[in-house]
Design a protein around this nucleic acid. Sequence first.
DNA 1: AAATTCTCTTGAACAATGTTCAAGTCTGTT
DNA 2: AACAGACTTGAACATTGTTCAAGAGAATTT
Lengths: 189, 189
Amino acid sequence: MIAGRGLSGLKTRDLAREIGCANGAVYNLVEDMDELILRVGSRTLLRLDQALSTAEGAGEPSPQETLVRIAITYCDFAAENLQLWRALFEHRMEAGKLVPDWSAADQMQLFRHIYVPLATLFPKRGADELGITARSLFSAVHGMVALGLEQKLVAVPLPALREEIAGLVRAMIDGLIARAERSHAAAAP
Amino acid sequence: MIAGRGLSGLKTRDLAREIGCANGAVYNLVEDMDELILRVGSRTLLRLDQALSTAEGAGEPSPQETLVRIAITYCDFAAENLQLWRALFEHRMEAGKLVPDWSAADQMQLFRHIYVPLATLFPKRGADELGITARSLFSAVHGMVALGLEQKLVAVPLPALREEIAGLVRAMIDGLIARAERSHAAAAP
DNA sequence: AAATTCTCTTGAACAATGTTCAAGTCTGTT
DNA sequence: AACAGACTTGAACATTGTTCAAGAGAATTT
């Protein structure tokens, strides 16, 4: 139902009718609507993880191109699973309740896809620094995908968006490498 | 009320009590809750626009550093106006209703802050291309701010986030420039 | 001054929706 | 056959956006 009509199209009564039970019975399967949404999110993250792994597997490209591939794959996944992907970020826990552990753990797993090629590119950097860079890279690409698929502003056709993302990821990596080399040259001239 | 308790903390009855009228009377001031939220959003965008203009005004820095300043200012504005800023992006129009013109126009205005320095940096590019690059740059920075201020994952202290943003913006611009020079050299060697 | 008309206000009522719960139903065990 | 435990049901409750008929007030007309 989330995939079809979005998070706001998920109603307990419709859900109960669809699975063939009384509306109250939904609460035997799930504590909350929050839990249901997080469980669906967990599946979505798993599928995203698989898509990213598949994208990495083909050929033996440079770390740069691996990162570009990951970004493009993320974009495609979001486009093909628009509502489910949106549900990952639109959902807000109701006040005072925090995300359970099993859900938080899912999210961290994804960063390793970015972390590994980054570590190859920047062997001098420590784990913390790499983690932060990975998160920044992800955030930047995520922003492009999020606002790009939001047809609110100028509607960008998907192929153009993919090109933009690829270009900007390459630019970011080039810039990061140049910056690293410059600071290296300055440190040991 | 949005600034205080967030979009989900805005209730018509509370609002009516606060302004001292019956709950029904709210609908004489505003068509909808949608309209109210968009009107608040309009004010927020105006204040953001002013903050960006102020940031540009000081000194006469290079276009690169202007773009970095803009990004940092955006980050700071989001941090200082967290709920109002979130409301800009969290709000979804109820199905089938489209954003009125006066609201859509507000959003476009902001891109000129990015567009102008970019046009200086890349005089060869056409208006369309610059517009797309501007939007990509904004999206990337927005993503970093959005996920950075979302304390859900690893909590990043604000100064560190600002540094990350500055670094990545510089890297992106360096990369874009290098890329432009390379294609220029290939075109006319 | 009285009457009329127009607008604004009020608060009840409606509809949608997440959640709870007492009563009923079913299944398996004693 | 009797009982216990679990599941199911559908009504009921609370919250919330929205509508609306009735009333209050002010301005204009007679």
